[in-house]
């Protein structure tokens, strides 16, 4: 019996060590830094709340709010487009399901940067969209509002993160027991009624985790807004990156990263709590 316990402990030690080295230690370092300050290009270990007070100022609160807003748009759009795709894949397709699933995942094989740059070619003044619209005679002068705007950032983030929403949603939708649906029909539920009262509630866990997979990375995005964003598209990720780069303000950057993380945890907790399947007895 004793030997067994120690074996189990030994097996547990590896993941624990992993967690401690790659998660807890860096996290603790960040917490410490966030209460320190920089003086004369060195980090000084004086306790201060100044970093957190600074975040409470107008400027950073507004950036946080606009980042949340943009991430919500991205999440909503991904859900709007991704749900039908996942539904179709899980419940309608039989023959080419694997191929189609592969097509959903395919973009993930390309670098994030390449996908971002690709949108420049598509949305630019001389880009594919404008050229197509012009040659069709739909517009006389190219749209300039496409590239370098929040629209461009939203489109690119939806494209980049949507596969992460489709996959969990697909997994949940696929598992719905057909007999439940048959019961709904037997009880006289039409297509819409069945969807709204049976399928949708049952797929809530998939929606919840899928939305989180889109919302969380969108909140931290900084390369895409920097490349595709307009003069107003400043996101919190860029400001954090700036603190660890140009500004050499690790303490302020750490504080901001922790606040961001807190917001994300709160969003995750809320979503997972309210995202439980309903309508089941």
């Amino acid at each position: 019996m004793r030997a067994k316990v120690s074996t189990v402990l030994a097996f547990l030690a590896a993941p624990k060590l992993w967690l401690i080295i790659f998660f807890i230690l860096p996290m603790m370092t960040m917490v410490l830094y966030s209460f320190w300050r920089v003086a004369d290009y060195q980090i000084v270990a004086d306790f201060t709340l100044r970093n957190y007070q600074k975040i409470g100022g107008n400027l950073y609160v507004n950036v946080f709010l606009s980042t949340i807003r943009l991430s919500l748009y991205v999440t909503a759009l991904s859900l709007l487009i991704g749900y039908p795709v996942a539904y179709f894949l899980a419940r309608k397709v039989r023959r080419f399901r694997l191929t189609l699933l592969l097509l959903v995942i395919l973009p993930l094989w390309t670098s994030y940067l390449v996908r971002t740059y690709a949108w420049m070619l598509i949305l630019g003044t001389q880009g594919v969209v404008n050229q197509a619209l012009m040659s069709l005679g739909l517009i006389d002068a190219p749209f300039t509002a496409l590239l370098y705007s929040d629209v461009a950032v939203t489109i690119a983030l939806v494209h980049i993160y949507m596969p992460y929403l489709i996959l969990p949603l697909y997994a949940v939708l696929e598992k719905i027991d057909p007999s439940v649906l048959e019961a709904a029909w037997d009880l006289g539920g039409g297509r819409l009624r069945t969807f709204l009262s049976v399928i949708l509630p049952l797929s809530l866990p998939g929606i919840a985790s899928g939305c989180l997979f889109v919302f969380i990375p969108s909140m931290g995005a900084f390369v895409t807004p920097e490349l595709l964003g307009g003069t107003r598209s400043i996101m919190i990720g860029s400001i954090i990156a700036q603190q660890f780069g140009v500004a050499y303000e690790y303490p302020f950057g750490s504080a901001m990263a922790l606040v961001l993380m807190g917001l994300i945890f709160a969003a995750a907790a809320a979503t997972l709590r309210y995202g439980r399947p309903r309508g089941t007895a």
Partner: peptide, 15 residues
């Protein structure tokens, strides 16, 4: 004041 410079630039971008 280097950190003030960064802040002013962020204020411009967020405006």
């Amino acid at each position: 004041d280097k950190s003030r410079w960064n802040e002013v630039w962020n204020e411009v971008k967020a405006a």
